[in-house]
């Protein structure tokens, strides 16, 4: 499955918005099989912040671990946010 983040918006900021986004998408995650790759595609995202990421990517990291692949992460705010999340979660995402 590929999760296109731009479908949530291009300014992905704030815990409340991150939580709402995850809650809205959560039912779709139930379709994912145990060995299926989960791709998070950042294409089109303009502003990405740790507060949104913590609420949305955090649960994905915890749930899918090695199944998760991040794609199109060139945007500098995506890079900076992922760098911080790597420190917090102790994992390499990029």
């Amino acid at each position: 499955m590929t999760i296109f983040l731009k479908k949530f918006g291009t300014t992905l900021n704030g815990r409340q918005f991150g939580k709402e986004s995850f809650a809205a998408f959560e039912p779709s995650l139930r379709e994912i099989k145990d060995d299926e790759e989960v791709i998070v595609d950042f294409e089109g995202v303009v502003t990405f912040t740790p507060s949104w990421a913590d609420e949305f990517l955090g649960p994905l990291f915890n749930r899918f671990g090695e199944q998760l692949t991040l794609k199109n992460t060139e945007n500098p705010s995506v890079q900076a946010t992922l760098k911080l999340l790597e420190k917090i979660y102790g994992k390499n995402f990029m």
């Binding site: 704030g14 303009v46 502003t47 912040t49 507060s51 945007n75 500098p76 705010s77 995506v78 900076a80």
Partner: peptide, 27 residues
């Protein structure tokens, strides 16, 4: 910000830190 050529490479970062500081007020 995206329309300012000089900020081409860093405007998402300016927007992101503005977002984080602003979020704190509400959170």
């Amino acid at each position: 910000l995206s329309k300012i050529k000089k900020l081409n490479k860093i405007f998402p970062l300016i927007s992101a830190i503005t977002g984080e500081i602003g979020n704190n007020s509400f959170d």
